[in-house]
């Protein structure tokens, strides 16, 4: 072993300083990046009804919105509730069937969160189950509107995208994960008695 020289201590202090400055610079950079992103949120593009929106897993084309007390089955429930229904065409683009369409199409409402909507298959006039890949279907999503809240004239819908990760961060499993919103659509609501 060689004897420690007098300059070693100064060298060590110098090394600490450099490392500290580097770490400080890194945290300052990440903080300012966060502030910048908060000040400039990404703009979600607007889409029009009738336009086909690619969410990654789904191809969604919104058609119309209406409100009424009769669900798409045609059978009024024993407890009448006001429903807001949105008609759309969907195609599942992934390789496995999915019944999570309500994650892709969400309603922007100012008041408290609504219950998740019910999917109805127009073809059967009944509840929709899984959507098989590559099969276009007409679907109606029906949200139960809470009592006392008036149904708005125009509905704002957000279409959320999903990405497919071959290896996720937890198990390394392959799955679809929620990504940023892909589009927002405004639909006029036809009021029915």
């Amino acid at each position: 072993m060689t004897e420690p020289s007098r300059t070693t201590i100064r060298q060590r202090l110098f090394a600490f300083l450099i490392a500290g400055l580097g770490g400080l610079a890194a945290s300052a950079f990440s903080f300012s990046l966060a502030v910048y992103e908060a000040a400039h949120p990404p703009r979600t593009p607007k889409a029009v009804p009738g336009e086909q929106i690619d969410t990654g897993r789904w191809l969604v084309t919104l058609r119309s919105a209406r409100s009424g007390t009769t669900p798409p089955t045609g059978i009024p429930p024993w407890k009448p509730t006001r429903l807001v229904m949105v008609d759309m065409d969907v195609v599942n683009q992934s390789a496995t069937p999915s019944n999570l369409l309500s994650r892709a199409v969400t309603l922007d409402v100012p008041q408290a969160a609504l219950q998740p909507p019910t999917d109805y298959l127009d073809r059967d006039k009944g509840l929709a189950g899984h959507f098989n890949p590559g099969m276009p279907e007409r679907v109606t999503l029906a949200w139960e509107w809470p009592e006392g809240n008036p149904v708005p004239q125009r509905l704002n819908l957000t279409i959320n995208g999903q990405i497919y990760k071959l290896r996720d961060n937890l198990y390394g499993a392959s799955d679809w994960f929620d990504a940023d919103a892909v589009a927002t659509v405004e639909l006029p609501v036809e009021q029915a008695p």
Partner: peptide
């Protein structure tokens, strides 16, 4: 092509 279709629930 490797696409899966499940038993129908209709």
């Amino acid at each position: 092509r490797g696409v899966r279709y499940i038993l129908t629930d209709r």
